[in-house]
Design a protein around this nucleic acid. Structure first.
Ligand code: SF4
Ligand code: SF4
Lengths: 155, 155
DNA sequence: TAATATAGGACTAATCAGGTCGGAGTTGGG
DNA sequence: CCCAACTCCGACCTGATTAGTCCTATATTA
């Protein structure tokens, strides 16, 4: 039902913590897990994954932990979701595996691809830094060629 | 990974067919399934569900089948997805079940809810009638208070 | 060296989507 | 009027994905 996984949810939580509330030297996986009530081993695995992809840097040892490896303002939600949940796609034909038996006869493929692009852009327009702001005005990027109009009433 | 279910995919395909290519009297579940190579019983179930919710009307008997019960222009993608996949939510806290252990300490709940609203609006702005058009200019509804700008480059 | 932290794999449990089955109801021809 | 064919309908089963656990190895510091 269009839901992002719990791992992503945890990852977002941890990254947002590292971006704003974390002490200077970073925070350990266990500390973050206890802070939010997340299963420690699971969050650890997510953070390991994020470390391998270069989002966070790890420091082993007694006072080790994780800290952001890139400025929060340069990390988009799309990147995070894609890193943890895999390439984001709303249909099976999104990435060129899973041949999808209906591919040839499918008549909704292209329109759905457009929908996917727009959802992607929604995720790209919000960065990790903005995730924490309470009052924010996040304009939506107009990707179509037409004027913006309020079509919501049409339903 | 933010994917909508195969059932929804099939449902969209069938509805789009009923909206445009179907013969006047409607089409049977079996006929549509064969047209697209979809497991017949599965599509049948999806159509049954859509019939119960008033999207299509069913006609039993020897020359029966389904036909759209509402004008295609008044059916938004959001409605269809919600009808088949359940209420659309990107997080566990989306609908007020699944208490989510982290609910109290969660610091990304509200921002994610905003993201969800925007994805919802993307789905609401496209109707079943527009799903089939090849050349279309679908403006995105600007829901924020600010100007639209191209922030895509920021990533 | 003891304690603490990440790294990484393998394993299990629970959930859910995708698919299948047999039955009930309707139609229409003989 | 009755039967046979066709359709919708609802419950059931199964394989795949996800969420979570466990254990061992490695690195760092007090
Ligand atoms: S090809 Fe059509 S049916 Fe197959 S996954 Fe893509 S949109 Fe869905
Ligand atoms: S409360 Fe926070 S952690 Fe729980 S589902 Fe909502 S966003 Fe995710």
């Amino acid at each position: 039902m269009l839901r992002l996984s719990k791992k992503t949810d945890y990852g977002l939580l941890a990254l947002q913590y590292l971006a704003t509330d974390a002490p200077a030297g970073g925070a350990s996986a266990r500390a973050i897990a206890e802070r939010y009530g997340i299963p420690a081993e699971l969050l650890a695995k997510v953070l390991q994954h994020l470390a391998r992809l270069g989002f966070v840097a790890a420091q082993k040892g007694v006072h080790g932990g994780y800290h952001l490896a890139r400025p929060a303002r340069t990390i988009s939600l799309a990147e995070i979701v894609e890193a943890i949940d895999g390439p984001l796609a709303i249909t099976a034909c999104g990435r060129h595996e899973e041949p999808c038996e209906q591919f040839g006869a499918c008549t909704v493929r292209d329109p759905l691809a457009r929908i996917k692009d727009r959802i992607t852009s929604v995720l790209q327009t919000m960065t990790l830094a903005e995730l924490t702001d309470e009052e924010q005005t996040i304009p939506i990027v107009v990707r179509g060629r037409g004027e913006a109009d309020a079509r919501l009433e049409a339903r």
